[in-house]
Amino acid sequence: MNPSEDPRLDVWAGHLERREQPEPLDPGTPPAADLDPVERDALDSVARRLADEALWSGPPPELRARLLAQAGREQTDAVPPTRTGHRPVRRWLLVAAAAAVVSVGGAVLWPRGPATEFALAGTAAAPAASATAELTPKSAGLAIQLHITGLRPAPDGTYYAAWLRGPDGVVPVGSFHWRKGGIPIDLWSGVTSDRYPELFVTLQSETAGPGPSDIVVLDGRTGP
């Protein structure tokens, strides 16, 4: 990053270099000297926002279905929203437009892919924990997003690992520590959930071997 190129970028991104190197990278270049205090405050405010959980968490996947179900109930209960005098929009036009809606957060918005959602329950090792998992087949594998609540941060020296299990064995799909929590956990699998239908999360010691530990904290299945 060249600090003199755009002082605003240095306010937002310059902390990365400063973290790497305690001494100033280039003491001769005042990175934000030409920013007035008001602008500097605004930039700092955005930087604080970028470190805020509110920016990085998201609604649980089941909320969409719940919202649409509620809207459907209201329509069938003959309490539709106030209509305008506009002629109805042709269905094909609506579908075509919606299909063009951009991707947000790496997920196709509408229409959605053949995603599968299911719940994971906390075990005796983490009775307050629960999660929902969203599995979406992608060209590179199976994208798994976990929305977790009630799980304690992994203690120092440990971490959480997620696994898929089936008749052919256990496959790791990713790890996380959950020390800040609040955001969906993105995992990837190279095996399919029809052959590996059980998804579970274990607490692992950093010094232990590569296999799943006996401390299972969340467990769920994609099918019956």
């Binding site: 969409r64 919202l67 649409l68 809207a71 459907g72 329509q75 539709p80 929203p81 106030t82 209509r83 305008t84 506009h86 109805p88 929009v89 609506l94 579908v95 437009a97 919606a98 809606v101 918005l109 509408w110």
Partner: peptide, 9 residues
């Protein structure tokens, strides 16, 4: 116009 599909979008 109250279209539920548009609500989804």
């Amino acid at each position: 116009a109250g279209d539920a599909g548009a609500l989804a979008a």
